[in-house]
């Protein structure tokens, strides 16, 4: 009999304890009503992304002069684990330097690891804060040089935000169409960000073969914004 009463009392205690715990839970959940929503109104309000966010890849230009910073060293092309970068470069017959013809990145393949941006000696290829790349076809995800190149203002923003050293103003060279051998020396001196050992050697060996086939006009068109791009370094 006492057992029965004892177990009944225990049962009541148990039930009341359970009810109290449920009440605590309900109360805690209900109190969340008074807190602000943490939802980000994304399409209405773009999220504030940190400067090092690894978004869409892009090519910077010199914020002051607007010239393309790529030196066609192909470091990014080689380091890319997905092989999504494709650089077409041409060895100029006049300067004996690599001239960038086209730069293609397949953003459908890219996994945004940012390795290419780490190896780039001139801080040319960077991850931007843009992530809205949705498109209707795979082929339209392949960005070419024109689509990749940022404007001067954007480049200036990213150079400041990512705290990258600004490219040194190119050495004033009145004799732009100088002979290739002569131009090689100033390039070596002017190398502003020598983080990587001079790797482009293998390319310069290959490049002359392709140079012969390509018409020089095409090269000129591409480099139209600044006539003496090849002499950046």
């Amino acid at each position: 009999m006492f057992n029965l009463i004892g177990s009944a009392i225990n049962g009541v205690k148990h039930a009341l304890g359970g009810l109290y715990q449920v009440k605590r839970g309900l109360e805690t959940v209900a109190m969340h009503t008074w807190r602000e929503p943490t939802t980000e109104a994304y399409p209405d309000k773009a999220p504030e992304l940190p400067p090092h966010f690894r978004g869409r890849l892009a090519l910077t230009v010199n914020p002051e002069t607007g010239e393309n910073l790529c030196i066609s060293c192909r470091q990014c092309e080689r380091v890319c684990p997905d092989k999504c970068i494709e650089i077409t470069a041409n060895k100029s017959t006049e300067t004996n330097k690599l001239e960038l013809i086209d730069f293609k990145i397949d953003h459908g393949l890219c996994m945004f690891c940012g390795l290419c941006t780490e190896v780039c000696p001139t801080y040319c290829i960077i991850n931007t804060n843009d992530f809205e790349m949705a498109d209707y076809t795979r082929s339209s995800l392949i960005y070419d040089l024109k689509k990749l190149t940022l404007t001067q203002e954007e480049s200036a923003y990213y150079f400041a935000a990512k705290e990258m050293p600004l490219p040194k103003p190119k050495p004033a060279k009145p004799a732009a169409p100088a002979a290739g051998a002569a131009a090689a020396k100033p390039a070596a001196e002017a190398k502003p960000t020598a983080t990587v050992s001079p790797k482009p050697a293998p390319e310069s060996a290959k490049a002359p073969e392709t140079t012969a086939d390509k018409p020089a006009k095409e090269v000129e068109k591409k480099e139209s914004p600044s006539t003496d791009t090849p002499s950046v370094n």
Binding site: V29, H32, T38, P50, H52, F53, R54, F112
Partner: peptide, 28 residues
């Protein structure tokens, strides 16, 4: 109800990681 609460806090941590590494999951 409940599952959202831990995710709110997790979101903050991911934001920290995003700031130092550039991404929210694939930090490298």
């Amino acid at each position: 109800g409940f599952p959202f609460y831990p995710f709110i806090e997790r979101e903050k941590i991911l934001t920290f990681f995003e700031e130092i590494s550039g991404q929210r999951m694939m930090y490298n």
